[in-house]
Design a binder for these strands. Sequence first.
RNA 1: GGCGACGUGGCCAAGUGGUAAGGCAGAGGCCUGCAAAGCCUUCAUCCCCAGUUCGAAUCUGGGCGUCGCCU
Length: 313
Amino acid sequence: MSAPLALSQPVICVVGATATGKTALAQALAEIIDGEVVSADSMQIYRGMDIGTGKIPPCERTVPYHGLDICDPGTPYSAALFQILARTCFDDIETRGKRSVLCGGTGLYLRAALDDYDFPSGTQVENPVRERYARLLEQRGALAVWNMLASIDPASAALIHPNNTRRVIRAFELLSEGRRYATLHEGLAQLEQIVPAIFIGLAVDPPLLNKRIDRRVDAMIEDGLVDEVKNLLDQGFHDGVTAPQAIGYKEIVAALEGRLSFDEAIERIKIATHRYAKRQRTWFRKDARIQWLCADSQDTEQLAYRACTELLQ
RNA sequence: GGCGACGUGGCCAAGUGGUAAGGCAGAGGCCUGCAAAGCCUUCAUCCCCAGUUCGAAUCUGGGCGUCGCCU
């Protein structure tokens, strides 16, 4: 249990699926309330990943930003690190007498920042246990490793599908730290929010959003996504574990390496983004704290006005 | 006009007499540190008509359509 963050005013939290207009609204709100934006985006964290992540270009920034360009794509990052970063930002911004606008689409990062998530092992990202079980998985298969988990920690195993190898490994990691996945999972529903916040969700009709996504992907290509990826590859992009999984990057890498045509790559980026947006929708849908605004129209001024008058009193 | 091939869910595609594989997309869902990741669930009666047969997506005939070649 962590102590609640003492902020004089709640963090304004702009959430929603990709391409719904979060960035524009967050900046508009920050301007109005004299705030600073804290980005909660697992990929905008990375330096040099700009076009493909939809990062707002420096020349368009009208307020201070945090949570962008924190580390190189080759460096591992995690929700636990973001938790510390975000809370430090909230504190600092408070100290400066300003307000925080948290903006992002990475659901886990948002919850890590605002709710009482307790990550064992602090900030250490790499864990030898992960490596060991990954190897075991290759040798013996998913079911065998899951069975191992079931024999020593049946409660946790019961919560994890055998095919969900990532989480099976995570359960072993937790065991090695004397924690149980099941115990943490139990507390999930009653996790307390320890940072005061107002949640504004941007909702866009899914078919409309998909069209918007398609247009945005085409624009990214026109804006030079391919060159951006080439540069990253020169800088050892492949060494990263998280960054190379980013939509828009893995596909272009495949095209550059001749495993895909560029047309196929672009098509896959669009589809992957549609699916990502869908997952974001399911994640946010169940969070009762979110107050939804229809963002079918992309009129930022009007959205900001409505947010201020309807949701921020 | 002739000859040949083909016609299975939104797309790709198995199945050649025994009651519709699979993949992709879509939809729904899960979630405490790789989360733009990972995982789960779900989704057709086989172009139409007539026939053969206990039984047809699978065989026969006709129609329609598509593609290819030829004139």
